[in-house]
Amino acid sequence: MGLETILHRELQIINLGLEGFAESLREKGAAVTHVRWQPPARGDENLLSLLDKLK
């Protein structure tokens, strides 16, 4: 499907992570499904290694 076609269809948007992006799109009138997500253990390497030990 070409870019022209995509841009002229109603967009189905899923936003992952930072909710600010979803809010900006909603303000423009777009329908957005927001998925709350953050990196495991907030990206802390020490905690990730502890979690690995406890599998």
Partner: peptide, 8 residues
């Protein structure tokens, strides 16, 4: 406890 820390 693991899920709380992993998922924040």
């Amino acid at each position: 406890v693991r899920k709380v820390v992993e998922k924040g």
